[in-house]
Design a protein around this nucleic acid. Sequence first.
RNA 1: GGCUGCGUAGCAAAACGGUUAUGCAGUGGCCUGCAAAGCCAUCUACGGCGGUUCGACUCCGCCCGCAGCCUCCA
Length: 461
Amino acid sequence: MLKIYNTLTRKKEVFTPRIEGKVGMYVCGMTVYDYCHVGHARVMVVFDTVARYLRYSGYDLTYVRNVTDIDDKIIQRANENGEDISQLTERFIDAMHEDERALSVLPPDHEPKATQSIPDIISMIEVLIKNGLAYVGNNGDVFYAVTKFDNYGKLSGKNLDDLQAGERVDVDLAKHNPLDFVLWKMAKANEPAWESPWGLGRPGWHIECSAMSTCCLGNHFDIHGGGMDLQFPHHENEIAQSEGATGETFVNVWMHNGFVRINEEKMSKSLGNFFTVREVLKQYKPEIIRFFILSSHYRSPLNYSDEQLNEAGTALTRLYTALRDCDANSQDFDMEYKARFDQAMEDDFNTPVALSVLFDLARELNKSKDLKDKAASLAATLKQLAGLLGILQEDPESFLKSGAVNGESESDAAIDQLVQDRLNAKQSKNWALADSIRDNLKALGVIVEDSPNGTSSWRRE
RNA sequence: GGCUGCGUAGCAAAACGGUUAUGCAGUGGCCUGCAAAGCCAUCUACGGCGGUUCGACUCCGCCCGCAGCCUCCA
């Protein structure tokens, strides 16, 4: 029985899809004016893991994650670069896909772009105006009138009076209420613009997601996800727009992932304390980043540091070491571990506990290496369950032998030779030589491990 | 100021009203020519003060500390 924490009710709820066996899930994606940082990676990995688990549970999932490819920052960045807007966005969309693939994030089923959803956006705004929830301001922009929507604030637990009190938005005289937000902006000179009933302009950010999600998944769908910071105002506004336009419930379950932090502070572009995925990939194997993200619960904060990444690497090495020289292709799975793993995942996708089951499994596998059938079953179970988290799918030997950083050390063949030399020295009981070869290898970042049958294997640190 | 949420051992991170989390690190042992890996054992905990209870890290209240949102942000 899958339970998911719903931000709307602040409780874990038993998940029941609207239509039996089918799930629609929408996640707010990136605004593509720069490379993805680790915070973005967390969203991608978290919801990829959710998607994988829903599919494994037998649901027919439609997973939609949008791309915001028109907004102020994009326009600004393109101007700074002297680059065409679409050229800039295409470039960063490609980079995002590259990062995704590196992190074993499976592509969503649909990836709508704001610029390709303009007609849907316009028609939704028209309905909102018709329903009396939106108005054209005296500067020509179209605004949403928050006071006209009854439950404004129900997701974030805010009410309009509190918001008013803490109000620190610049006063915009075109708005009836300072909290009203823009649905359609009039075009400025040299900005991309589309024809609309209100003149040449472009959509506001919030309406894009309302239009794209309902367009791909219907007026009412099961799961909507995104980072914590989108709770207010973005998701609150989406509810107001979508429910205001369709008159139907918009979303059943709202899921929000916690932030990646650096020194107890949110990683963000505005604070400038971020690491891009590609930067981190220069130092760590992609699977280590994925493991690191999964090692804490998706709603908890995740502190980014080299120590944490290094630990994730050590932990992964332990799992791969257990799998080394094992036949993991058995179809005979260990149901006890599987059940424990499922139980963890069904409790609001508790990946830290799911990982701990994997470690228990690895320990038992290490103890059972002599029992062929049991070892095969445990290894197959370990690999299959880890696969649901998107880890441990590489060949153990190649994972262990690949360096943390991009190449540049001794070649595998050269290392093999040195290891063989050492074995020869060992055979003639020349311990001094054998040990000095091992020390030399260690200096090259290579660890040699002898096995009881007289052979040696090696791995890179 | 308003609204969320958090505070677990050296570090990271979970669960649970009474029973081993788990990973890394430490200590002792087994294994090894010696190591490494692996296995076994083991030491460090539940921010503070009250309350409920036969019993609370786990429920309730207060206090302290931290983070996030209230402006674009994953």
